[in-house]
Write a protein that binds this DNA or RNA. Structure first.
Lengths: 122, 122
DNA sequence: TTTATATATGAACGTATGATCATATATTAA
DNA sequence: TTAATATATGATCATACGTTCATATATAAA
């Protein structure tokens, strides 16, 4: 078992047991930026309400009050969540008079959900 | 534009604009149970630290202090996060003396991450 | 045994989150 | 115009989260 200690009698107390594994992980992992982006996407889908919204918009274009009725939460709550999804680029809307029709912005999210469903249901 | 109101002059103020769309969404969406499960998985990956952990464990078996060094956070913090991942069934460990070697529990998560990377990088 | 080590676990703390209520804005109808 | 409607937005609040510190547990070494 490899055991190393940097600056043993100083302040530094970093313990590194398997240096080469850490190196390998560093080499293979996505950049910090990519990690942050990816995890923000997963976080957005990591809430039942938002996941329901995204599933609903996968096939059908819906307005805010439709979604509110479907989710059984306030229209305000839906609007807030839609804003988060829109800010992340997962959702877009078209406007017809007073009504905002929301849909998924592109297929990436739908694909992601599909593969999630596939993998998880095994 | 279809506009319906149930219990107009009562307490109920549910507004339903497109009944058929809501029906369709209901028909096509996964069950509440599945939504909860799926969103909990996404939530688990919706944090940079946990996502880094999962990416690291994708290829290499690592112990807690390796991960702590890799992530540059406390071993305690890593341990807490590993527990969450383990409770969700995303991660497992084998023990060799005092050292716990963690890996991904199965390929589902790795696959999910892979498709996420693919879809998002376009 | 006693001590060191690797990890787990609980408490604490600041911060983020998701919902609701109240209010603002913008379009349509009267 | 004025009133109604559809949605957006800001404030608020209880709760959940992620980290660290302190401590417990269990194995290994002396």
């Amino acid at each position: 078992m490899i055991q190393e200690r940097a600056c043993e009698n100083g302040i530094c107390k970093v313990r590194v047991v398997h240096t080469e594994k850490i190196k390998e992980a560093r080499a293979n992992s996505p950049s910090e930026k990519k990690i942050d982006y990816l995890s923000s996407i997963f976080k957005a889908l990591g809430d039942p309400s938002r996941m329901k919204i995204v599933f609903a918009l996968k096939d059908v274009e819906m307005c805010v009050c439709d979604l509110a009725a479907f989710l059984d939460i306030t229209e305000s709550a839906v609007s807030h969540q839609l804003r988060r999804l829109k800010d992340l680029g997962l959702v877009k809307y078209r406007r017809d008079g007073q009504i905002y029709y929301y849909t998924l912005k592109d297929d990436h999210v739908a694909e992601l959900l599909k593969s999630a469903l596939n993998h998880m249901s095994k």
